[in-house]
Amino acid sequence: MSENSLAIVNIPIQKWGELYSEEEALNIGTIFHDLNMPFFAAEGVMGDKNPIASGAGSTAKTKEQTEREALMTKITQSGFFLDDLTLYLDTHCKDTLAIRLYHEKAKEYEELRKQFAQKFYPLTRLCITNCNQGNENNFCWQEGPMPWEGACV
């Protein structure tokens, strides 16, 4: 790392530190304690329980929808954990702790997406083969709500 120099931006390289749980990380917007820098006007919603992701306040949901939302919430949390960890690894490609964690989390994420395709609908084209018990006469890519509809958070 360069020492501080004149006439150019100098930014310290982040050191590996304490991490949030998957659930907390999504609500906060980062997995790293050291990068959590909230804004005063949004502190009212800084709780560690996200009313949207936890599905609170919603009534009269079918059992299937409740299950689907619970699994989708796990996927969102797991996927975001990987997103943030990937950016860290982009600038810290030799950090063995981070690399090991990446492999562990990526496997969990793959498994969750596979389960989601088996039970509900595919999230990516690659998940299509996991749908409908592998029925090769059924094309399921159009199944499920579009993500912007807010139906399956």
Partner: peptide, 8 residues
Amino acid sequence: EKRLQYPV
């Protein structure tokens, strides 16, 4: 990927 990075 047919989901939002953060739910809306």
